[in-house]
C-alpha cells in the first residue's frame, strides 16, 4: 500500500516533468510511427503487385498499424540513467531512503508512457482510419485480457533487461556500447520494425524462440493471431529468467557499489 502511494506520487512528478518536454516527445512519436507506416505502404504495394507474404493482408496491416503503440508500451529507457547513477554516485540518495531506485525507474517509465500515449494514439488512429478496410481487431473480451497480461510481462522483461545492463556499471566504466547493441538487436528481433513472420523460413524457429520476440511481436500475435500454448509457456519462462537475472545482478552489484562523489 505504501509503495503504491509512493509510485503514484512519483508518477505524478514524472508526468509534471515530462510535460516540459512535450514537443520533443511529440516529434519522437511522429518518428516512431513513420517506420511502420512506410513498411505498411511498401508491403501493401508488394501485395498489390502479386507478392504473397506468409501472413494475411489483414494481419499485416493490423500489425503495422498497431506496432508503434504496442512497441512503445513495454519499452524502457532506464539502463542509461541507472548506469549513470551507479557510476556518478547518484544512487546513494536512493539507497539511504526506504524506497527502491527501481520504483523510481518504474514511475519514470509510466510517466513517460502516459504522455507518449496521449501523443501517439491520435497518430495511430489516423493510420487506422486510412487503412480501416484491412484493420481487424478482436471484440473486447478474454483475448484483450491475455494481450494485457502478455504486454505486462513484456514490460517487465524490458525493464529487467534494463536493470541487468545498468547494473554492469557496478563493474565496468561504460555500458553505452552494450546498450546500443541491445537496442539494435531488439529493434530487429522484437518485430518492431518488420513482423517476424516475414523473415526467411529458415530463421523462423530461431526467431520464435529468442526472447526479444516476447517484448513486442508476441503480445501482438496474442491480439491478432493465434499463438500456441507452448509460446505462452516460453514467454513465462523468459519472463522468469529476465526478472531472476535482474534480481541477481542487482544484488551482486550492490556489493561492489562504492558510492562515488558522496
Amino acid at each position: 500500500m505504501r509503495l503504491a502511494r509512493v509510485l503514484r506520487i512519483l508518477v505524478i512528478r514524472e508526468v509534471t516533468i515530462m510535460l516540459h518536454y512535450r514537443w520533443w516527445l511529440a516529434m519522437l512519436q511522429l518518428s516512431n510511427i513513420v517506420a511502420p507506416a512506410i513498411s505498411l505502404l511498401v508491403w501493401r504495394g508488394a501485395i498489390a503487385q502479386g507478392s504473397t507474404p506468409p501472413v494475411t493482408e489483414t494481419f499485416l496491416t493490423t500489425y503495422l498499424v498497431l506496432v508503434s503503440v504496442v512497441a512503445m508500451l513495454p519499452s524502457s529507457w532506464t539502463s542509461g540513467f541507472l548506469a549513470d547513477s551507479i557510476r556518478l554516485g547518484g544512487l546513494s540518495s536512493w539507497l539511504v531512503r526506504p524506497c527502491s531506485t527501481h520504483l523510481n525507474g518504474i514511475a519514470n517509465n509510466i510517466g513517460e508512457k502516459v504522455v507518449k500515449l496521449v501523443l501517439l494514439v491520435p497518430l495511430v488512429a489516423v493510420l487506422g482510419i486510412i487503412f480501416r478496410t484491412e484493420v481487424e481487431l478482436p471484440p473486447l473480451g478474454l483475448r484483450w485480457l491475455v494481450f494485457a497480461v502478455s504486454l505486462l510481462m513484456a514490460g517487465a522483461m524490458t525493464f529487467s533487461l534494463d536493470i541487468v545492463i545498468g547494473s554492469l556499471a557496478f563493474w565496468f566504466e561504460d555500458v553505452t556500447a552494450v546498450n546500443r547493441l541491445r537496442y539494435l538487436l531488439a529493434r530487429i528481433l522484437s518485430g518492431s520494425l518488420i513482423p517476424l513472420a516475414l523473415f526467411p523460413a529458415a530463421v523462423i524457429p530461431f526467431l520464435n524462440a529468442q526472447p526479444f520476440r516476447f517484448m513486442v511481436s508476441f503480445p501482438l500475435e496474442v491480439l491478432i493471431g493465434h499463438p500456441s500454448g507452448q509460446a505462452f509457456a516460453l514467454q513465462v519462462g523468459w519472463f522468469a529468467t529476465f526478472v531472476g537475472t535482474a534480481v541477481v545482478s542487482w544484488r551482486l552489484g550492490l556489493r561492489s557499489y562504492q558510492g562515488a562523489g558522496a
Binding site: 505504501r2 502511494r5 509512493v6 503514484r8 506520487i9 512519483l10 512528478r13 531512503r97 526506504p98 524506497c99
Partner: peptide, 8 residues
Amino acid sequence: LIHREMYA
C-alpha cells in the same frame, strides 16, 4: 510530498 508517502 514524496517523502511523506515514502515514510508514511
